[in-house]
Write a protein that binds this DNA or RNA. Structure first.
Lengths: 333, 333
DNA sequence: TTGAAAGCGTTACCAG
DNA sequence: CTGGTAACGCTTTCAA
């Protein structure tokens, strides 16, 4: 590999001068600059960022720890992070933990050693030990999650309470009187609780006789399928089911389809998230659009700002959401 | 940040000794080792991998260049790459190009400067300029693609010709006499041509009167939808449509559904790829399972071997595929 | 078993 | 505007 030294020698100048031309850090006479550039061109010299980092202390690396890239919303966030990171010359080091705590801890250490300048952590929950590690490793840290809220660290989300409220409202405006809400677990996360509250608020405001809250045993479509069965058994006359995420909604729709119950003619089903699948499946799902890509994009902007020393005043950023009205919900006849 | 120097001073030993204990590279007396370890523990010292890389020339970094992480199969490959990479202490630096050539070139340069030890390139095609860049930058390079074949570089795929042949055979064995093949473009890639050939071979061997090859204008479900319309218009009596990828198949199924043609009762539809969606949608899609995760896993193993200096004898690795028999295809009555 | 010192490829400061 | 040199944090001879 050709180094700055080689270039200096070939160009007959000092390494300081070469450094100046590649960094444009100090004035260099036009002739010298040209000569140096020519040598660089000929030799194909490329500065070694590792050496540079060692002296400047800037690695231009951000660690991104995710649970699982197989979740399309995670991939979307990473896409946003990576794409805008690159705009600021930052690269990302990707680590998947599959939710394992010791792996999370291990990767934080790893990123520490690799000298990343910040960490974005995407996961459903934030373990106490992880927090400790992260605090000890004094670099900007940002937490991204669809499912839980963490006051301690900067984050970017949507107003989930409002989104849930608005979707419920939308369903009610469509004429539905029996609107069920299907959440993903009997022990809702703090964020899920917000959504439940949004639903309840709409139900109360419209003086719908009672709220119908059901609990699935997870967030996958299989669990949505099983939950739908449950709901229908107990409430033959529900006309709308609002699911706390799209996969659950797909499961519900699949169940109804197997039982020959037409969606949306007989029952409307709404989702949450707006995964790609929501538009591919038929009927296309009416859902709350969470701007995952943008969440990643904004997140990295925040962390880069923080790295740059700018005081970020808002730790908690709320992005706009949207009720995507598609085919799985319709006016009651 | 605490450095090796600090540890040495606090422990009252030389930095050489500290280096020896953290690397277990040379014998160190038990007492000294213990003392050093204690200081490390107390100070929370973590070796700086950047400095280490500078001297050892080993960055333990692999660059992964992808077109778009939003394609779930790409995310799967990346998952495989990352997970087994970690087993060998390698980290990945992720770059998305969105298919832009100049971006690809830029990222190769970037990875060069960041001192990655190898590059895995996931994309539909490999540009000549990219090849040049990559050759100039003399590190192991591996190409992963669902859609094209590149003899020059190591890769890992499945036997696409055989897979296509077997799926067609399966359809014929189900009793179908009019089996159409839907490819994604009028100008098939070399890999797609292999699949077309596999289809043709099965048609010929079974003395089916004629092959029915249709061309979609892309690989998305919308294009599958449009193509299905075309197929039905020209061939009312097809009973099976084998699509060159799952998204196309979903489009076809959606079209048939809108036209009230029952899948699989009236027409069987097969896919290729086995994306997650293939099992989520109803009917679940009969498809060729391409082991994307494993392709990534094997790819990084190969590249790490090459980095280690082991001569990889097989440049082209074929992984097993599988015909996933699900609900979208059935015996003809 | 230990320490001193050179060196990895840069940047940044200080002279000139 | 240019060159010399220390320093970044570490590994790796070489001697002791």
């Amino acid at each position: 590999m050709v180094t700055i030294k080689d270039v200096a020698k070939l160009a007959g100048v000092s390494i300081s001068t070469v450094s100046r031309v590649i960094n444009n850090s100090k004035p260099v006479s036009p002739e010298v600059r040209k000569k140096v550039l020519k040598v660089i061109e000929e030799t194909g010299y490329r500065p070694n960022d590792i050496a540079r980092t060692l002296v400047t202390k800037k690695s231009y690396l951000i660690g991104v720890i995710v649970t699982n890239l197989a979740n399309s919303y995670v991939a979307e966030m990473v896409r946003g992070i990576e794409e805008v990171g690159k705009m600021y010359n930052y690269d990302i080091l990707l680590c998947s933990t599959y939710g394992d705590k010791s792996t999370e801890l291990k990767y934080i250490q790893l990123l520490n050693r690799k000298q990343v300048e910040g960490i974005i952590f995407i996961s459903d929950k934030l373990n106490e030990e992880v927090k400790e590690q992260v605090d000890a490793f004094k670099i900007p840290f940002l937490y991204l999650s669809r499912h839980s809220i963490e006051e301690k660290y900067p984050t970017v989300t949507i107003d989930n309470n409002l989104a849930s409220y608005e979707m419920t409202q939308y369903l009610i405006n469509l004429g539905h009187k029996k609107v069920a809400y299907l959440t993903d677990s009997e022990e809702p996360t703090n964020l899920e609780q917000l959504k439940i509250n949004g639903y309840k608020k709409a139900i109360e405001e419209n003086e719908i006789e009672k709220e119908l809250i059901y609990y699935a045993n997870g967030r996958k479509n299989e669990e949505g399928y099983a939950a739908a069965k449950e709901i229908l058994k107990e409430n033959e006359d529900v006309t709308a089911i609002f699911c706390s995420n799209d996969e659950l909604a797909i499961g519900v729709i699949n169940y109804l389809r197997d039982k020959d119950i037409k969606v949306p003619d007989e029952i409307s089903v709404a989702g949450y998230g707006d995964l790609r699948m929501a538009t591919i499946i038929r009927p296309q799902i009416t859902t709350v659009k969470e701007p995952f890509y943008d969440m990643g994009a904004v997140a990295i902007r925040m962390i880069i700002k923080e790295i740059a020393g700018e005081k970020v005043k808002e730790k908690r950023v709320n992005l706009p959401f949207h009720i995507e009205k598609r085919d799985s919900c319709k006016k009651i006849k």
